[in-house]
Nucleic acid binder design. Structure first.
Lengths: 197, 197
DNA sequence: AAATATAAGATACGGCCGTATCTAATTTGA
DNA sequence: TCAAATTAGATACGGCCGTATCTTATATTT
């Protein structure tokens, strides 16, 4: 029974690390998760982690992508712009509900410079941007005659993402009421106002 | 020529620390400013700083309040809602222009949990909340008949602050174009839509 | 003026970050 | 098969955080 000095490498090692990261995230939450802690839990050293991910936020995002069961969003055609938006927000809320409180806020805080809602909330590989999700809805709405034009300004198209992020930051729950309110009080009025690009 | 063991205390000491913090902020920027560095620059120790401010963000906010020449915002009656908003945004932009790039973003990142635009952007003592700034404008607009009701939902009233913060986070400059766009494309349509609380 | 309370200053600690450097295991490919 | 290239793993470093503890100067109170 000699000690095996087997070394994990590549994908095997990476999977072990991400598993450890995921466990730590569940156990201690984002704030108290440390790179060194994950390394120790994965029975390796932080040097190895830093070779793969530049910081805690990116490590956790990788773990979320692998184990978080984050669906890639589908822009479903529900027949109305309001329905489409409600559906999208509902899907977002479902994802958020799976995250420990503070996880998203922590990641956001650490990544304030390079916000990318898609990469943050979708699978890393399918990274939708907010615009990619919203624009098709607007196109359909314009085709239906619900809104005057689908050619809206950048700031308007990305507004749903802004509202969503703000809601999360405000540590409020993303309740159904909040979703409805954002859509009826803000988004629909803006989209319908038809201020064109 | 005996060494004087004079100790600064209270306000005198505090002023010296905040001066040092302000200098460091100018010299190194928010990210590279450290509590220990400020303590050293002020010829004291971090123990003293921690007795007064709980973290870097709060220390810097205190320094900004003292030396940043941040005006407390005035809700000027320009005669129209659009004018009022433009005026407010213009004042905000002027304040932001005085800050080194990244300062506000850094503070935001460190304080994501307790966002308070007023305390952040106004003098600490006059801490306006967004609502306190916007509501009077809405009241006047309703009186003029520009909007149907001034009794708008919380989320709508605080929307200007959200847009502003988002603009800052996006490391974009708060240009006049951006101000106009936010107001014409988003805020006025929402306020005018008259969705009541 | 002496006793007491307060707060500054000095020092040390454990924790984590992010980097650098060295070694040795494992894979690669000539 | 054996040398070369990778890369895991170990270790150490300086930097900063935030806290605790102790001393001593200064202010307050009696």
């Amino acid at each position: 029974m000699a000690e095996k000095k087997k070394r994990r490498r590549g994908a095997e090692l990476e999977a072990a690390i991400l598993t450890a990261a995921w466990d730590q995230l569940q156990a201690k939450g984002y704030r108290d998760l440390t790179i060194e802690g994950v390394a120790a839990a994965a029975a390796t050293t932080k040097t190895v982690l830093y070779r793969r991910w530049p910081d805690k936020a990116r490590l956790v995002i990788a773990a979320l992508s692998k184990f978080g069961e984050m669906p890639s969003y589908q822009g479903v055609d529900t027949g109305s712009l309001r329905g489409d938006l409600l559906d999208l927000f509902g899907q977002m809320a479902a994802v958020l509900a799976k995250l420990r409180t503070g996880t998203l806020r922590g990641i956001l805080a650490d990544r304030l410079d390079k916000l990318d809602l898609g990469q943050l909330m979708g699978k890393a590989n399918t990274s939708h941007t907010v615009k990619e999700l919203i624009q098709p809805m607007l196109d359909r709405a314009a085709a239906r005659g619900e809104i005057a034009s689908a050619d809206l300004p950048e700031r308007v198209v990305t507004l749903p993402g802004v509202l969503l992020i703000n809601e999360v930051i405000g540590q409020r729950q993303l309740t159904v009421d909040a979703q409805v309110a954002m859509i009826d009080e803000i988004l629909l009025p803006v989209f319908r106002s038809g201020t064109v690009k």
